[in-house]
Design a protein around this nucleic acid. Structure first.
Lengths: 110, 110
DNA sequence: CTCCCATATCGCAATATTACGATAAACTAA
DNA sequence: TTAGTTTATCGTAATATTGCGATATGGGAG
């Protein structure tokens, strides 16, 4: 085994888990924060920015692209990446609604 | 290899990535949603609720407990779990501030 | 065309995650 | 004490993730 049993859970649960997975690495957090800080297309500085090998950086970028949260466009010889605002907003809202559900004052806890 | 290079990143980036990792499985999302819905201590129904083996469920509970987001207390023969409100709030705020950083109207993107 | 540059992909190694059956540990009840 | 119930841990197998060097790919520049 070692494979997640996605069919046991709702689509929303799988979706949220996948989003969390995309964020579940400091390098990917760092990439996103960098793109957000620049608030523009970034072409190339990411490898030096992260300190990881070029191949590893490319792999993390691919995962973020697969998750849809960033987009890349070919700009001459290099590729420029930026946040996908639509997906970013979707992430924000899903996480928000997940965390909003709880009412802390219930206090029926142990 | 195969081990994350945490020292390349800030404490905040590692922390956020670890939180995301705790949420990065639909079973753990389902557990948290169930605890939130009940808004109380839950003793035992989790195995039937999830549909995973008892050992697997226990492992997911352990990970959530390690992340600090839930707490368990022994209640006679069984163990009762509930959300840790303090840590829950910390998660909520870290994710909120992460997602808030972006201004979508910048629009200097490709 | 050939040479360089940036990025992507391949192949591999090390480690982590997911899942489950079997077993241990802790408590209750009889 | 013994039997039953609940949860945790161990051991193992399958798969996923992380990381990097090497190599391919897809543009420019000359």
């Amino acid at each position: 085994m070692g494979v997640t049993k996605s069919d046991l859970f709702t689509r929303q649960q799988n979706e949220l888990a996948n989003m969390a997975k995309a964020l579940a690495h400091p390098a990917r957090i760092a990439i996103l924060q960098y793109l957000v800080k620049k608030n523009a297309c970034v072409c190339g500085d990411l490898v030096e920015e992260l300190g990881l090998a070029q191949a590893t950086t490319s792999q993390h970028l691919k995962e973020l692209k697969n998750a849809g949260i960033i987009q890349g466009t070919v700009e001459g010889v290099s590729v420029c990446y930026c946040i996908n605002p639509k997906v970013w907003t979707a992430y924000k809202e899903l996480f928000n609604s997940f965390f909003k559900e709880v009412t802390l004052e219930g206090g029926k806890c142990c």
